[in-house]
Nucleic acid binder design. Sequence first.
DNA 1: CGGCTATTTGACGAATCTCAAAGGGAGTGG
DNA 2: CCACTCCCTTTGAGATTCGTCAAATAGCCG
Lengths: 248, 248
Amino acid sequence: MNPAKAVSRLTALAELSGTEMTALEQMVGPPVELARGRNLRDDLGQEPGLFFLHRGWVASAVMLAGNRQQTVKLHLPGDMVGAPSLPFRAPVELLTALTSVTVSLISPAQLGDLFVRHPRLGALLYLVAQEERVTLMDRLTTVGRLDARGRLAAFLVHIHDRLSPIGLTDGNMIEVPLTQQQLSDVLGLTPVHINRVLRDLEEVDCVIARRRHTFHLIDMDGLREIALLPQRTLRRNLAWLPPQAVEP
Amino acid sequence: MNPAKAVSRLTALAELSGTEMTALEQMVGPPVELARGRNLRDDLGQEPGLFFLHRGWVASAVMLAGNRQQTVKLHLPGDMVGAPSLPFRAPVELLTALTSVTVSLISPAQLGDLFVRHPRLGALLYLVAQEERVTLMDRLTTVGRLDARGRLAAFLVHIHDRLSPIGLTDGNMIEVPLTQQQLSDVLGLTPVHINRVLRDLEEVDCVIARRRHTFHLIDMDGLREIALLPQRTLRRNLAWLPPQAVEP
DNA sequence: CGGCTATTTGACGAATCTCAAAGGGAGTGG
DNA sequence: CCACTCCCTTTGAGATTCGTCAAATAGCCG
C-alpha cells in the first residue's frame, strides 16, 4: 500500500499538503484481502459501500433483467470504488474482484467530514467524479459508434493510459487479467467475436501481440488511429480550487 | 426561472436552508437566451465553461475522428452543464442547444467558494455527479446490451422519469424535441433504423403513440419490461451529510 | 407556393450473434 | 507425478440485426 499510490487520483490533479495526505489516509479503514471472484459488498458490508482499492482489479457491472449484464468500469489500484451507489436506495452496481485484491472500507461519515474539514479535497473528489463521467462518456461513445475492432483498440489504449501512471506497465506491455468472456462483457460484444477480432488485430493489423493475459501494444499510434478517440489531458492545480485547510 | 426548479437536482437529495438557496442563486450569472442549434461555449465563454440550464434542452456530445459523434447526455432544465470538462485541458464535450434555451454562466471561482462556505452543498454536488455517472452507466448498459427496440424503450422511460419531477410531463405524454437523426445519435443507431423501430413500438408492440415530437407512453409497464433496466430510487437526507453551514 | 429538411420505405450488404464443437491450460486430487 | 476435469480459447456455419445507399413522401417556414 504505497501511500503515494493511494492518493494518486488526487495528486494527479493538485499538490497535496502533508495534512491533506494524513486526512485521506485516516479516512480509509484497515486493508482487507479478497479472493478473485468475490463480491465486494458481500464481504465488506452491504450498506453504504464505499471502498478504496489498494491492489488488484475490480469490475463494476450494471445488471439487467434476464441474467444479462454490462461491465461499466474496470477499477484499478488507487480508485475509489462504489461511489455511484451513494445517492441511491439500492446499490446500482455489482462489484466483483477480477483478481485477488486488497481493499479498505471508507465510512461515509468520514467522507462527509472530509468535505467540512478539507473543502479543497472535497472539490478534488468532485473533479475525480467528473473524470469518471468522462471515462464513461468515452466508453459510451466507443460502444455506440465503433465496430468491434475500434472498441478493442480503444480499450487497450485506455487501460494502458491508466496503468502507466500507477507504474503497472512494462514499456508497452500490459497485463489485463480478464478472460475473453469478461472482455466481451466490457465491450458489449460476444466472447466469440472478441476472439476473432483479437486475432485480426494481431495477425492482420499487426498492432498488438499477446500471450495469455499479457498484451504487447506494438503500434500505439496505429491503435489510437483505430480507436478514433482523442487523448484526454488533465489540467493540474486549477486556479479556482479552495486553498489548503489549516489544521488547528 | 422558478428558483424551486433551479435547484431541483439538489432539493431532490436533501432539504435546503434559505441560506443555502441564496448561495446557489448567487452562484449563477445572469440568464442568457440562445437559439436552437447554438454551441454554448461559442456564445458564453470558451474557457472553463460551466453552465446552469434554466429552460430548454441541451445535448452533450463526444466527438470522434472522422466527423462521427455520440450524444452522451441530454440536459434538461435544472441541470448543471459542462462539469465533465472541468478537470481537462480541452473541453471534452460539444454542447448544443436542441431548443431555444435560457442558460447562465457559473464561474468556477464561485464553485470553489461554495465548497468552502457550504460543505454540505459541496457534498450534494458530489452526489449529483454520482447520479450522472449512474445515468451514463445505465446508458452504456442499454447501448451495449440491448437491441434497438430495448434502447428506444429505455430512452423513452428515462426521459419521462426525468421530465416528471420538473413538471414537464402531461400525464404519460412527453415532448421530445429531437429529430430522428438526433435520436439515432443518442442511441448509437442510424436514423433509418430508428424510424423502423419507432414504427414497431407503435404498431406492433402498441406501447407508444406519437405525433410529431410528442410521445404518448401508452403502456409504461410494457416499456419498462422491454427496457430491462431497473428503476433507480434516490435516498433523501443521507445521515452522513455535513450539517448546514451557519452564515456569519 | 416553393424550397428545405425530416420522415418514411425498399433493397441489399456487412457486422455481429447464435449454436455447436473441438482443442488447450491450469489447477486438483489421486 | 500423472490424469482428470473444468474452464477458457479457438474455429466453423448459418441466422439476424443493423447499416448503407437510394429515392419517394410529408411537413414546415419563408
